[in-house]
Design a protein around this nucleic acid. Structure first.
Length: 257
DNA sequence: TCCATTTGACCGCT
DNA sequence: AGCGGTCAAATGGA
């Protein structure tokens, strides 16, 4: 490390962005207090800028390799870990039905600490054949146990026709095809947008794609440590930042109008 | 027998 | 250390 070096250009740009973001936060304070979804998005924005900044500073200072446990060889092959950040803002819908027109395969269920009901994990049934990276998390709504809170992570890249966002906006259109549930409740009514989050038709296309990649596992810690390309890392950061901004704007606009 | 679901265990992140 | 996300063996249904 060399403390004498000035911040790299990317870091300087991010510092400017961070400052602007802070000002924005002050200006929109009242709005953020009122709109929890916007506040979440804003917090995420701040977090990602901070994270990006520290990454950028690392680029200029050290080789900064992400920590990775050298787990036992046997497990290393079996489990290539892929944990995704839960703080990540993804389209979330409140739905009376689990049927959204796509084929899903359940791969896990988990009791969540702060939640009354377990969370179920589904991935696209076409993952193996087509490598579709869509994932959704389903949880019975605490406020309305007859509804599900469904969080989508990643977009469908498979050929299974209807796209999730379209389904969301065309309530009731998706009925009676695949049932990928083990919850036992099956009603088919309309799907409505959860009050807190706005599933834009494609608010952050690159965002979802990025986060479906293997590297998603490490959130924003891009693999620039060893063979990573700093330039592409920077552009990914900017892209991510823009996506955050877009989402944030959408949230504010959605609420205000 | 095949395929989807369940569930305990593992792993990374905070 | 605790929690959430994922894996993969076990299980059950068609």
């Amino acid at each position: 490390m060399s403390p004498d070096l000035p911040p790299p250009p990317l870091a300087q740009a991010l510092i400017a962005i961070r400052d602007c973001t802070e000002q924005l936060g002050l200006l929109l304070r009242a709005e953020l207090l009122e709109n929890s979804a916007a506040k979440c998005a804003f917090d995420e924005l701040v977090r990602s800028v901070s994270c990006s900044l520290s990454l950028a500073e690392d680029i200029g200072s050290t080789s900064c390799v992400g920590k990775r446990k050298s787990s036992s060889a046997s497990y290393h092959k079996r489990r290539i870990c892929r944990r995704r950040s839960r703080s990540y803002s993804c389209p979330k819908v409140l739905s009376k039905t689990l049927d959204d027109g796509h084929s899903w395969r359940k791969y896990g269920q988990k009791d969540i600490q702060s939640a009354k009901y377990p969370r179920s994990y589904f991935r696209c049934a076409h993952k193996t054949e087509q490598g579709c990276k869509a994932i959704r998390q389903v949880q019975v709504s605490e406020e309305d146990p007859s509804s599900y809170e469904i969080t989508y992570l990643g977009e469908h890249t498979c050929q299974d026709p209807p796209l999730v966002p379209q389904i969301i906006s065309t309530a009731g259109a998706a009925k009676g095809s695949q049932q990928s549930t083990s919850f036992g409740i099956s009603c088919s009514e309309d799907i409505k947008i959860a009050e807190a989050v706005v599933p834009q038709p494609s608010p952050v296309p690159s965002l979802n794609h990025e986060h479906c990649e293997e590297e998603v596992a490490s959130h924003l810690r891009f693999p620039f440590g060893n063979d990573g390309d700093v330039t592409s890392t920077a552009s990914m950061e900017v892209e991510y930042f823009m996506a955050e901004m877009t989402e944030f704007e959408a949230l504010l606009g959605f609420h205000a109008s």
